[in-house]
Each structure stands twice: as C-alpha cells, then as structure tokens.
Nucleic acid binder design. Structure first.
Lengths: 141, 141
DNA sequence: ATAAACCCTTGAGCTACATCAAGGGTCAAG
DNA sequence: CTTGACCCTTGATGTAGCTCAAGGGTTTAT
C-alpha cells in the first residue's frame, strides 16, 4: 500500500463527493487517478487529490465541468499554444469571476435591504416588511 | 396594444433569453405574464419584466430556479409564516451569497497569481510560467 | 475462513434546464 | 389580400451532471 496513494472511498470523503462522482469525473477526463493497484483499484496521488480540490472549488463558484477542464488542460496542451493564448484563457476567467462577484454583491445588497427592514418577530407575516417591500418593488433585484 | 405590456419576443430580447425559455418559466410558475391578449398572446407588464430581471440576476450568480422560486414565493405565502421565518429565508440566502463571494475571491487570487507571473508573449507556451506554476502547485486553488 | 466493507464494470435512469418540431393562428406592411 | 414576422400549443429531445442497480472480485477484521 503506497503511502502516497488513496483509494477512491477515501478521496471521495476528502472531497465531499460520492465515489460515483469520482468515477464519473474520470470518464470525463477531469480527474484520472495516476495509478491502479494490482487488483485494478484506483489509486489517487496527493497531486490527484489537489487537483480534486481545485475542481471542487471551481465547481462551488459556478464553473461548469467543461470550463474547469479548460483550465486544467492548460498544462497538458502546453506546446500547442503561445503564452499569450494561455494568459488569455486565465484572464478571461478572472473577468468572469469579477463579474460574478459584482452580481453577487448587488444581490446581497438587495437582500440585505430587505432583511434590515424586517422585525423578524414571531407574529404572522401578514404585515412583514420584507414582503411589503418585495411587493412594492415588483420583486426587482 | 397596452403601452405597459410587452409581447414575449420583446421581453425575451430584453432579458437575453429565448421565447422558449420564457414559456418554460411560465410552465414552472416562475414568471407568469399577468395578461393575455384577445388572441391569446402573452402580455408582460413592467412588473413582470422586473421580475424577469430579478430571475436573470439570481440565475447569473448561481441560484437554481427552485431557489429563485423560493425567494419569489415569499410574497404569495405571506400569512402562512411568521416574520421570523421569512427573514430566515432571506438571511440564509445572504449567507450563501457571502460564502460564494469568498470562494470567488480565493479563485480570483489564485488565477491572478498565475496571470501576473506570465509574460504573455507570442512564444510557444512550453516555458510558460502559468503552466509551470500550475504543475508545481498540483493545480490547486 | 467467512462476513463486512471495500472495490470493479457496464449500462440504465434521473433532475434541472432548456430547446426544437409540428401544425396552426394573428397582424402589419406593401 | 397575401407575405413574412410574429404568436400559440403539445410533446419529444437534448445536455450537464450525476446516481443507481446488477453482478462480481478484493481486503480486512474477527
């Protein structure tokens, strides 16, 4: 048993996903364990697990698996592109992220305005300020 | 032709989605035009369009249609819940949003580190710093 | 040495979110 | 008064991202 290798169940737990999901990611070429045991068990290296963490992070912030693959593939396809191309991909992602952050901030402000105006008490919501505000503003963002 | 009403094609363009999508949202109860013309055409009021914008915004930042419906439904189910309940839903969403923003910021920092280290030139990416950095760090976030 | 807890593969099924196709009305311009 | 751009409905299909079931090996603890 290689001390630097982890079986699928262990990795799944570490990443907070199911083993099915990991096998699915392998089929998709997103996270292919770098080793197999004699018996054919998937063995994930520490690097594989790192890659897994990257994937989970990217997923959590709304990147599709295809987009994540695009980022991860940069490494593989290195000599097929120029530095400029590579930097472009990364910079585009940064732009995307920034615009997502802006959207979230707007959204948060909007919700915060609602929350702050509400008493939060135990009475029926018939006169709830949040609901009144939503109605009045036509549910806008 | 009511000056305050818009037909589906117009609204679709304004929201940046297809008419099919709008009809789908109607089936899902997410955005039901408040009027129909004699001929059965959907007529969206300014308020409907506002609601549409809210939906698009929420979608853009990663809320599912079900979650969006939950927010929008607050208005409808008012007397079924207390102020506290209502405020809770909103505050939960705010929490979610904040954690998404944090994730995005981490992601952005990580990518920015990569981008800043790259020359961005026209040479082959074989020696690209971004790729080197990715490899070295095991593609982490 | 056997049962529980793992692991494997193949392939079907599921949810969310659309998207398209068929067949057919409506309306404004020329 | 017809042509082209709209609109309608019903219902099938598609894509992403899993999830499960069947049938069967492997490892480990007792």
């Amino acid at each position: 048993m290689n001390t630097t290798s982890n079986k699928i169940g262990h990795v799944a737990k570490a990443l907070g996903v199911s083993v099915d999901t990991l096998r699915f990611y392998e089929r998709e070429g997103l996270l292919v364990p770098s080793l197999r045991s004699e018996a054919g068990y998937r063995l994930y290296s520490a690097q594989d697990v790192q890659r897994g963490h990257f994937i989970m992070h990217a997923k959590a912030v709304g990147f599709s698996l295809a987009e994540i693959a695009q980022l991860l593939d940069l490494e593989v396809t290195r000599d097929a592109q120029t530095c400029h191309d590579v930097k472009q991909v990364v910079d585009d992602k940064i732009q995307e992220i920034e615009s997502k952050i802006l959207d979230l901030r707007k959204m948060k402000q909007s919700l915060k305005g609602l929350s702050d105006a509400c008493c939060g008490g135990e009475e029926s919501a018939i006169h709830c300020t949040i609901l009144d505000t939503l109605a009045e503003r036509g549910n806008h963002a």
